[in-house]
Simulated assay, not measured.
Amino acid sequence: MNTILFKAADRGTADYGWLKPNYYFSFSQYHNPGKVHFGLLRVLNDDFISGGGAFPTHPHDNMEIVTIPFTGALVHKDSTGGHGVINAGDVQIMSAGSGIQHSEANASATEPVTLFQIWVYPKVENIKPRYDQRKFDVSDRTNKWQYVVSPNEADNGLWINQDARFALTNLSAGKAISYSNAFKGNGVFLVVINGSVKVGDTTLGRRDAIGISETDNFTVTASEDAELLVIEVPMDFA
Rank of each mutant, 00 (worst) to 15 (best):
M1N: 08
M1G: 14
N2P: 00
I4R: 14
F6K: 05
K7W: 01
K7T: 10
A8N: 14
G12F: 03
G12T: 10
D15G: 09
G17A: 09
Y23V: 02
F27D: 08
Q29R: 10
Q29T: 14
Y30R: 04
N32F: 05
H37W: 07
F38H: 09
L41M: 11
R42P: 09
R42I: 13
L44P: 00
L44E: 00
D47R: 02
S50R: 12
G51I: 07
G52A: 08
G52C: 06
G53M: 02
T57I: 08
T57Y: 00
D61P: 00
N62L: 04
N62P: 01
M63I: 15
I65D: 04
V66Q: 01
V66H: 01
T67L: 00
T67M: 02
I68P: 00
I68W: 07
F70H: 14
G82V: 10
G84D: 14
V85E: 15
V85A: 11
I86M: 09
G89M: 09
D90M: 12
V91Y: 02
A96W: 05
S98W: 07
S98H: 06
Q101K: 10
E104S: 08
N106C: 08
N106V: 09
A107K: 13
A109G: 15
A109P: 00
A109V: 09
A109E: 15
T110L: 08
E111H: 12
V113G: 04
L115S: 08
F116E: 02
Y121G: 02
K123I: 01
K123R: 14
E125G: 08
N126K: 11
N126I: 05
K128F: 03
P129L: 03
R130C: 07
R130E: 12
K135T: 15
K135S: 15
V138H: 10
T142C: 06
N143E: 12
K144Q: 15
W145C: 03
Y147F: 15
Y147P: 00
Y147W: 09
P151L: 03
A154I: 14
N156D: 13
N156T: 03
W159N: 12
I160M: 05
I160R: 06
D163N: 15
D163E: 15
F166P: 10
L168C: 06
T169S: 15
T169L: 05
S172V: 07
S172R: 11
A173C: 07
A173P: 04
A173R: 10
G174S: 11
A176H: 07
S180H: 10
N181R: 03
K184A: 14
N186W: 00
G187M: 05
G187D: 06
F189C: 04
G195L: 06
S196A: 14
S196D: 08
V199K: 00
V199N: 06
G200N: 10
G200S: 12
D201K: 12
G205Y: 03
R206A: 13
R207D: 08
D208E: 10
A209R: 00
G211E: 05
G211S: 12
I212K: 01
S213A: 15
S213W: 05
E214R: 13
E214V: 07
T215S: 10
T215W: 00
D216G: 12
D216H: 06
N217D: 13
T221F: 01
D225M: 02
A226N: 10
A226W: 00
A226Q: 06
A226E: 07
L228D: 08
I231W: 01
E232M: 05
M235L: 15
A238V: 11
